[in-house]
């Protein structure tokens, strides 16, 4: 457990030393959402109707953009080899890196989301559920993305390829994430989509570190 925490701590430390880099993801998130009023017009009713979907799609794209770097720097400077040889299970190494990644990129998205919901004139009934759904959904995105990030290591055009691999797998999170918020706003059940999001998070927690570990092994083999 100590080693797990020291791995998380090292990645957080690195992110902090890189300073602005992880904030860029939030800035991208905000800009992507702000583009929509320019695209569909500033009509408050239309914006309110699409707010949940827009925020979720932008969150999806933002977390995907940052995933490319998840293993890339460690792969390039040789640290990944040493992490593979560290005396702790590779699945834990993956989990530690995903945890640090989520803390530096997923968490800021959740903080920024209510602000964007205000900009898009979203119904107040949806705010709490939006935050809850993002809190359950974005770790799943990071976990599923970790598999893709491991697979594309050493390929030509890693980033574009990663989005092609990972975005279709993000669809269920998008569907239930938006479903929960729309449910809360529309006054019908939002508990079940939230529970399903939680279920998907648990399944991803159990399976993704393992698949991502297999991907890392073959990347270095």
């Amino acid at each position: 457990m100590d080693r797990f925490l020291s791995l998380v701590g090292r990645d957080l430390h690195l992110a902090q030393r890189h300073g602005f880099d992880s904030l860029l993801v939030v800035v991208f998130f905000i800009i992507a959402v702000v583009l929509f009023p320019f695209g569909v017009g500033p009509e408050p009713n239309i914006l309110a109707r699409i707010a949940a979907g827009v925020i979720w799609v932008a969150a999806l794209l933002a977390s995907m953009l940052s995933l490319e770097r998840l293993f890339q720097t460690d792969y390039e400077d040789g640290s990944l080899e040493l992490l593979l040889l560290a005396p702790l299970p590779l699945e834990l190494v993956v989990l530690a890196k995903v945890a640090a990644h989520w803390l530096t990129t997923g968490l800021p998205l959740i903080v920024a989301a209510p602000l964007l919901a205000v900009l898009l004139n979203m119904n107040g009934a949806g705010f709490a559920v939006l935050v809850a759904a993002l809190a359950l959904g974005t770790p799943t995105l990071s976990l599923v993305g970790a598999v893709g990030a491991g697979l594309v290591l050493g390929s030509r055009r890693g980033g574009v390829l990663l989005s092609l691999l990972v975005l279709p797998l993000f669809i269920p999170v998008l569907v239930f994430g938006v479903g929960a918020v729309d449910g809360a706003i529309g006054g019908f059940a939002f508990r079940s989509p939230l529970l399903i999001l939680g279920g998907m998070l648990l399944a991803a927690l159990a399976l993704c570190p393992w698949a991502s570990g297999a991907a890392l092994r073959q990347a270095l083999g």
């Binding site: 020291s6 690195l14 390039e76 400077d77 080899e81 040493l82 040889l85 005396p87």
Partner: peptide, 25 residues
Amino acid sequence: YVGHLDAVKPVLSVMENVAFWANLR
């Protein structure tokens, strides 16, 4: 294992680099 790459993080100090790997073991 010492490979071709040195696994030295540019933003961490020499001490932090070495201590991180030592603490894992």
